[in-house]
């Protein structure tokens, strides 16, 4: 047996893992190899040194653990009790909020445009057709922009112009029909609606006040708990 292999077995021997069929061979090697004998005694000494220098736990370890555990449980209970409480904002929250606001805004504009536009029974889109001869239209304007006289009109509002590009060949089909307006939202003049709003506001105020009171009491209890725990720690010291 070579020294490398013997040393591998010596490490395994410390854990009682030497294969039985290698034990005799290992012992034979050790009888003739002083270096490996020294290696074995060094490994055993190293193990003894590690065991003898086992670090001691810091003082008040148990107390600190109990405090941390209580805190963790309190936080968990807090999350369950006040799930609506504001969490610390993260770095990208503003971007998400902005995105949401932008999406809501666009949806509102579209809704307004489709459902609450002027009562116009004429064609909704008035577009001088460029589809018939797009090349001519481009040639007329000197570029691929529509000439001023052929801007797209949307419910009477001008949305196209010199700065708006129109792909050659594109044409908007006129839509005819009556206005699709629906009566949505609050009437504004309805007294019943106002009463409901006022009642809901009053309820909201009451709930907010109760919540603040509970939160205040909770913080007070937390402070009392921390103080008594600190006193206990001081006493132990």
């Amino acid at each position: 047996m070579r020294c490398n292999k013997a040393r591998e077995f010596l490490s395994m021997e410390m854990d009682g893992m030497v294969p039985p069929d290698s034990t005799v061979e290992l012992e034979q090697h050790l009888e003739t190899c002083a270096d490996c004998q020294e290696y074995r005694s060094d490994l055993l000494l190293g193990k003894r040194l590690l065991a003898a220098t086992e670090p001691e736990l810091p003082e008040n370890f148990d107390w600190k653990l109990q405090l941390r555990l209580s805190q963790t449980l309190r936080e968990a209970a807090g999350d369950a009790a006040f799930p609506w409480e504001e969490k610390p904002s993260d770095a990208w929250a503003w971007l998400r909020n902005f995105g949401t606001a932008a999406a809501v805004g666009m949806a509102a504009i579209l809704t307004f445009a489709i459902f609450v536009g002027p009562n116009d029974t004429s064609d909704h889109f008035v577009a001088d057709s460029v589809g018939a001869n797009p090349a001519a239209a481009v040639a007329e304007g000197g570029n691929d922009r529509l000439p001023l006289s052929r801007q797209i009109r949307f419910n009477g509002l001008q949305v196209g112009g010199p700065m708006q590009r129109q792909a050659p060949g594109m044409s908007l089909t006129p839509v005819t029909g009556s206005r699709l307006g629906l009566d949505r939202g609050w009437s504004g003049g309805n007294l019943e609606d106002l009463r409901i709003i006022n009642r809901l506001r009053a309820e909201n105020r009451q709930l907010t006040s109760a919540l603040l009171k509970s939160q205040l009491q909770l913080r007070l209890r937390q402070a009392q708990l921390d103080t008594s725990a600190q006193k206990a720690l001081d006493l132990e010291k």
Binding site: R7, E8, S11, M12, D15, Y39, D42, L43, G46
Partner: peptide, 11 residues
């Protein structure tokens, strides 16, 4: 093998 190497290094 890692335990073996670590013991050797520690030694």
């Amino acid at each position: 093998s890692r335990i073996n190497r670590a013991r050797n290094r520690f030694r």
